[in-house]
Design a protein around this nucleic acid. Structure first.
Lengths: 248, 248
DNA sequence: AAGTGGTCTAGACCACCGA
DNA sequence: CGGTGGTCTAGACCACTTG
């Protein structure tokens, strides 16, 4: 119960109806897969107008309990609102709070083709691979060694990679007018490889954070992959998950 | 443009109104901070009923462009819908895909009091610290060394920590009837400490993933803190961020 | 053709806020 | 007090799905 439960607080009728329906679903009087009564029937059942029924039913829809289809009806989809924990960022840069104040320095570029250390779906294709260091602002010490895998179709990105403040995903979006629809991020740890260690100023084999990010378009197509190695103590990744207060 | 753009598809009037309003905000005819016209005025302006205005305005509200207050009016809050990327899990266990098939083996318990390696707000208080190993299913090799910081008020948790499949946050929730409202997760890398290495079967100083999770209640109060060390190659953390298709 | 949800109108009363 | 958004009614027409 909320701390500000009010005794005299009359609930709107659509709330009463919504709660009654939720309870009926929760307690199994309507099973998942069942059809709910029609709006007209619910209106009669609860003695309210169609507007009120629709407002109530809208709540259930938003809570994901039901789906509706014109000409068909209303189907129960879930027994209870799942408690959902959500981390939302309004912009991908917020994923990595620092990203915007960083710059990239490209070391060299080559092609990779079937790297077995990569996931199967990535290793299948041939990628342009940009090796680079990431710096924070004016600092002379890099925070990460980055390998950027760029789909051959997006090769023109390479030329603009070193502009300050750019991010891969923004380049893909602006240069090619495509939206990044999904980002997959896999985090693990690693021993800093001998190839990368001197650039980072650490000993080979010392601990490093490995962050792989896969930028995907709307279908399944992979636009770019960023493989980052962060030496110890130069970088922390923080995520917050907040409880959704959707339907109570 | 969507692939199924239909020419003959007449838009609902509330959509037309909503888009007009969004464009007006986007282009600065209504500035952030300004009040929008009242519902009555908008109805007259666009020649639609109040229902249609409200349905339109509801879209802007859901998109986060405006906020409304009865007795006051409608305030413009943002110039454009920010693209939001969301990662949603229906249950905290999904945050760490493995957690449910794991078991904990407690090594020993002590008290910590002002550990300087911890964030200031955590270090301030006195915690019951449970040292443990986390195993996957029947495997004999632990995947992590865990230090569980338990608020003295929740000390009774300790006794049930070793039950298979339990998770800290569930114990807090069930034993004390409190909901975890927020989880903060900080990821970095570390050299596996000498104290932990033998238990994990690795050499001290080898790379390890450090995952700290802070479980918070509704206020600011911290319930528990989990400090995990995962040796290399035993564990990956994956997160997906999907583009919200909310308001177009 | 009958019935569904989706849209829309023209009214109405209310709680709340600011002057 | 007058005006706001929040709630609610009783109608209506429509596009769509199903038999």
């Amino acid at each position: 119960m909320s701390s500000k439960a009010l005794f005299g607080a009359r609930l709107p009728r659509y709330q009463v109806v919504a709660q009654a329906l939720m309870r009926d679903i929760e307690e199994g009087r309507y099973q998942v897969g069942d059809m709910l009564p029609t709006e007209a029937q619910l209106g009669e059942l609860y003695g309210v107008s169609r507007y009120t029924v629709r407002e109530a039913v809208r709540r259930l829809t938003e809570a994901g309990l039901i789906t509706r289809r014109a000409g068909v009806g209303t189907t129960v989809r879930a027994r209870a609102t799942k408690v959902r924990y959500t981390a939302t960022v309004s912009d991908l840069t917020e994923l990595f709070s620092f990203t915007e104040q960083t710059r990239l320095q490209v070391l060299h570029t080559d092609w990779i083709d079937g790297d077995p250390t990569l996931p199967a779906d990535v290793a299948e294709q041939r990628w342009l691979c940009c090796h680079a260091l990431r710096f924070v602002a004016e600092s002379r010490e890099p925070i990460a060694y980055v390998r950027m895998l760029i789909h051959p179709a997006y090769e023109s990105i390479r030329a603009r990679l070193e502009e300050p403040g750019v991010t891969v995903y923004r380049l893909v979006e602006t240069l090619h007018g495509e939206r990044i629809a999904e980002v997959r991020q896999v985090i693990g740890c690693t021993a800093v490889p001998a190839e990368e260690a001197p650039h980072l100023g650490v000993e080979p084999g010392t601990p490093g954070l490995r962050v792989h990010r896969y930028y995907q378009g709307d279908g399944e197509q992979l636009f770019t992959v960023a493989l980052n190695t962060y030496p110890q103590d130069r970088f922390n990744l923080e995520t917050r998950w907040r409880l959704d207060m959707a339907a109570e």
